Simulated scan of single mutants.
Amino acid sequence: MDILTEALGSMRTGHPSSIRTDGRAPWGLRLPSVAGAGFHVVLQGTCWLIPLEGSGPVPEPVALGPGDVVFLRDGQGHILADDPATPALVPEPGQYSKAPPIGALSIGGDGPRTSLLCGNYHLDQGRPHPLVRQLPELIHLPAGHGRRPELTAAIQLLGSELENPRAGSDGIVPALIDSLLLYILRAWLEERPAGAAEGWAAALRDPAVAPALAAIHTDPAARWTVESLAARAGLSRAAFARRFAAMVGEPPLSYLTRWRMTTAARLLREADLPLSTVAARAGYGSEFAFGKAFKREYGLAPGSYRRLAS
């Protein structure tokens, strides 16, 4: 079970949107907060990213170069500019040309050119998966020779499609942008030093916790207990429960309930299944018990949630 893909899939509320941005110095772009997660890929040239807000201390400006990738977990507002001192403006709708998935924006003067792919992934931030919640607010992956070859290849393919759109580009670009998100998060998770990794970065590699997570994700409807999950992990009940909670951020059965409700919500949004089937797939023997549990988690009955999500 690919837990990273499952976690992101549970939060998706739509397809990613993107804009090819070309700036010639002097240029500055002030981007407001968006619902979801933001990203930028530097295809050519250099620029600065200047964070404007966040739940913690505002980070320092980040210098970006060709091939660099930035992921903004909460889509917080920020500035992109050729220099931190350049005034930044919010782009007007009339400045955009073309439409997503290959939108375009050209700004600035007649100086050196910087080309970026900018956009956002539409993720439900109201109930984020704990894997995503534990990510830093800003992830910067500098380009590196021989590092992250899959991510580098995806960036090169995107750059080629955006520079010279051809037949099929409207289908290729969104698929590449979807892949880009997984490559970004895979790179960040895998580059945590084994001894220093914590939280979900450690859980996905842990020989005891990872099999238990895979079991929950593979079959959320199974009658899992702490004992049965501990047996898969090869630990005693108490040792497994402590280890799981320390890495995942909540006890095993709490996470099981969370994932069951997440699975049910996704089925209600995406599949036209009877409520009895949704209840069974979420591990509940009756619609009544399922409805009660779902309303406790989401504040709505399953039927009402489905109507609002449609």
Rank of each mutant, 00 (worst) to 15 (best):
G199A: 02
A210F: 09
R205W: 01
A201Q: 00
L189W: 08
A203I: 04
R186Q: 15
L185E: 01
A187K: 11
P211E: 10
V209S: 08
D206E: 06
I184D: 01
A210T: 06
I184S: 02
E190I: 02
A196I: 06
V209K: 11
A210R: 15
A187W: 11
G199S: 02
G199M: 03
R192Q: 15
A201Y: 01
L213H: 12
R205Q: 09
A201F: 00
A212Y: 10
W188E: 15
L213M: 11
P193C: 09
A208M: 11
L204G: 04
E191P: 05
A210H: 14
G199E: 00
A203V: 05
P211G: 10
P193K: 08
A208K: 11
A212E: 07
L185D: 01
P211D: 04
A210Q: 15
D206A: 07
G195C: 00
R192D: 02
A201M: 00
A196Q: 14
A196Y: 03
A208R: 15
W200N: 01
A212N: 09
L204N: 02
A187P: 12
P207W: 05
A202S: 11
R192L: 06
R205K: 15
A197T: 03
R186D: 13
L213Y: 10
A197M: 07
V209A: 09
E191W: 08
A197S: 12
R205Y: 02
W200V: 02
R186Y: 11
R192E: 09
A202F: 05
R192M: 03
A197E: 00
P211T: 14
G199W: 03
W200P: 04
W200K: 03
A194K: 14
W188D: 15
W188N: 11
W200D: 00
A212K: 12
P207F: 06
A202K: 14
L185N: 04
L189S: 08
R186H: 15
R186A: 13
W188M: 07
A202C: 05
A194D: 08
R205H: 12
D206R: 10
W188K: 11
A212F: 10
L204F: 04
A202M: 01
P211V: 12
L185K: 10
L189G: 09
A203S: 03
W200I: 01
P207E: 03
P193Y: 12
L185M: 08
A187I: 09
G195F: 03
R192K: 14
V209L: 08
A212Q: 10
A208V: 10
R192A: 13
A210I: 04
G195S: 09
G199R: 04
G199C: 00
P211N: 12
E190C: 10
E198D: 01
P207S: 07
W200S: 01
E190L: 14
A194Q: 13
A194C: 04
A208Y: 13
R192N: 05
G195A: 13
I184R: 14
L189D: 07
R192Y: 05
D206H: 14
A210V: 07
E190P: 04
A202P: 05
G195E: 06
L185F: 05
L213P: 13
E198F: 05
A194F: 04
L189R: 11
V209W: 05
G195W: 05
